[in-house]
Amino acid sequence: MGPSGCGKSTFLEIVAGLIKPTSGSVFIDGRQIKGPDRNRGIVFQGYALFPWRSVIGNIAYGLEEKGVPVKEREKICRKYISLVGLSGFENHYPFQLSGGMKQRVAIARALAYDPDILLMDEPFASLDAQTREILQGEILNIWDKTRKTVIFVTHNIEEAVFLADRIAIMSARPGIIRKIVDVPLGRPRFEEHRTAQELMSLRQEVGKLVREEASKNAI
C-alpha cells in the first residue's frame, strides 16, 4: 500500500520484468530478474484482455506462448474457467462481459500457465463494491487451491487487511518501504473476518500510516 505516485505499480512491473530498475536489482529465490518470465503472472487494473480473443482464447494465450499442445491447453483452460466461475462463457468476447467477469478472465489467464508468483496491480479498483467483495472472496478461495505467492497492490485498507499476511506500506519521494506489518489472522479466512474486532487496531494502524504518507505527498 502507499499513496498515489509512490511507485507501487512501478515496483510491480519491475518484479514482472516489464521495466528495468534504474539502479539495484530484484531477486526471486536467489535468481535475479532480467526480463518477463512465465514464472510470474500479472493482473492489471485495466484487465488488459485481448478484445479479439474469446474468454478461452485469452486464457490460452500464455499456454500458447509456452508451447503447450492444443488438447492439453483446452483442458487447462477449462479448469481455470471453472475455477473463476465462468463456465458457460468460454466463447464470449470481452465486450460481452461485465467488469467483474473480465477481471475473472484476467486472473484465470495469469494462473493458467502456472506461474509461481501472481502479481496483482489494483485488480479490483475499478469494480463496484459488491463485485469487489465477491472477487476478494474468490481470490482467497483461489489462493487456498493454488497456494501461490501473491503480491497485491491496493489502495483499500480493508482489502489489504482481509487478504494479506503481510502489508508493506510505501512512502512517496523517495518510494521506499516505510513499514511492514504482519496480519495476525490465519487461513482459511471467511466473510466475518472482514469486520473482525481483533483486526480493528491493525486497520487503524495501517490507515494512519497510509494517511501520513499521503499527506506528506500532498505537501
Binding site: 518477463p36 500479472i42 488488459a48 509456452k66 489467464r109 500457465y113
Partner: peptide, 18 residues
C-alpha cells in the same frame, strides 16, 4: 495499439514476432 496489451503479452513470454 493499447500499450497495456503489449505489456500483458510480454508478461506472458511473448517475443517481438509473437
Amino acid at each position: 495499439v493499447d500499450p497495456l496489451l503489449i505489456k500483458s503479452a510480454r508478461s506472458m513470454g511473448s517475443g517481438d514476432f509473437s
